[in-house]
Design a protein around this nucleic acid. Structure first.
Lengths: 219, 219
DNA sequence: TATTTTATGATAATCGATTTTCTTTCCAGA
DNA sequence: TCTGGAAAGAAAATCGATTATCATAAAATA
């Protein structure tokens, strides 16, 4: 009846769809290389063409979709050398950010970091969706006080790219345990303001995650 | 009569408009903070709402427009601290890229670099639009062989951001001369594979440009 | 039979009109 | 005069339908 009932809060359809699709793409709900069937999505998410196309265009600009000239949108293929690139960039940018974050982080940052780490520990064993969200928030908080909005923006973008690979890789519980332990160690070193050690540990953390994520592509 | 006559080559309206607007925003054809009057643009560029809105959405995702919840698009304001952030990120990412470019660059890269430098010298004194394009291409070529597509992507994005400030700043012919000379010195050091010196010079080059660009914002 | 050409159905891109939301103005009441 | 709220106008967002393009299959030609 009332079409406005579709509106959640005061966000536009386009922005809602954008967020939903971003999550779904990162979570691997689509096949890599798959063509986006706009009409199907239209039905699935109960929106018109216009807001849907606007969301797809944004996702293409963000790098979570490819757009070929007159033949619509596609989920990007998984490519070993691109994953290597993403992981290496994560290593460099996140270490850079962490060093600055430790240098400039105040008491509020320390509190937020402890809170984020606690939430992450609690999320362990909970449903995957929730853990993923909490995990992303943890890494975001870790570098949040670096002082550079653009650096944070790039890091978030790389995280989305990286997670798309990682989520498609098979589980490895032994490595996963190590990674989990590293989260707490990172907090410890950050609070001790040990820049060198924290940076080295984060580097190792990302390289280990890279090993895991490699399981998603054959080549 | 024939509406398809509007098509240039086989690009879509949306992608054409995207490129035109990107150039125009970077070149300062709009006032900082200005609200985008969609209907006016529609007339100006002879397109419908849909392709125009798709282009605007892409530009917002790219960072050349801001998008407020239900009140359209705006040209981002000029902000001193954001310019500082952009310049510092340029410094870090481009130096990183240059070091790798010198390490991995092959003979083809050397040739392209010499060609780009030559074009830049020739563009001096030509119309501004052409110089800007050639200048952008030069810096792009300088780091092109770094081996990381994502690093190049971020650098290009930062360049667009930076240039928006710089193009609005008043001319300074004495600094401009120094900057021009540095372009040639950069090529020389790059071809000599002197990573340290080249990186230091690029750092200085960006800091000098930063000084110039600062002239665009009061704060 | 192989290759090109021509139809046909499917999909992408665009347009024009409608609906919703925001902004400004004006008026009533304090 | 000032404040709050309704009404009108402008602008943003969305929809449904149209147009253009691509992809596939059938037919025609060499």
């Amino acid at each position: 009846m009332n079409k406005t009932a579709l509106r959640v809060g005061n966000a536009t359809h386009a922005s809602r769809i954008y967020e939903i699709l971003r999550r779904d793409i990162v979570n691997g709900c689509f096949q890599a290389g798959e063509k986006i069937a706009i009409n199907a999505l239209k039905e699935r998410y109960c929106v018109g063409l216009s807001p849907l196309r606007e969301a797809l265009n944004k996702l293409a600009a963000y790098g979570l979709l490819t757009q070929e000239n007159q033949r619509g949108f596609r989920i990007p293929r998984l490519d070993r050398s691109e994953l290597d690139d993403i992981a290496q960039m994560r290593r460099k940018l996140e270490c850079m950010a962490l060093e600055q974050a430790i240098r400039y982080g105040d008491a509020e940052w320390e509190s937020e970091l402890l809170a984020a780490a606690h939430r992450l520990r609690r999320a362990n064993g909970e449903d995957v969706e929730h853990w993923e969200h909490t995990h992303g928030r943890f890494h975001q908080t870790l570098v949040a006080s670096c002082g550079s909005a653009w650096l944070l923006r790039f890091i978030e973008q790389l995280h989305d790219q990286f997670d798309r690979y990682r989520r498609l890789a098979p589980e490895n519980s032994s490595i996963r345990e190590v990674l989990d332990a590293q989260h707490d160690e990172l907090v410890e070193l950050a609070l001790k303001r040990d820049i060198k050690a924290a940076s080295l540990l984060l580097e190792n953390h990302i390289m280990l995650s890279h090993q895991v994520a490699l399981g998603s592509c054959r080549s």
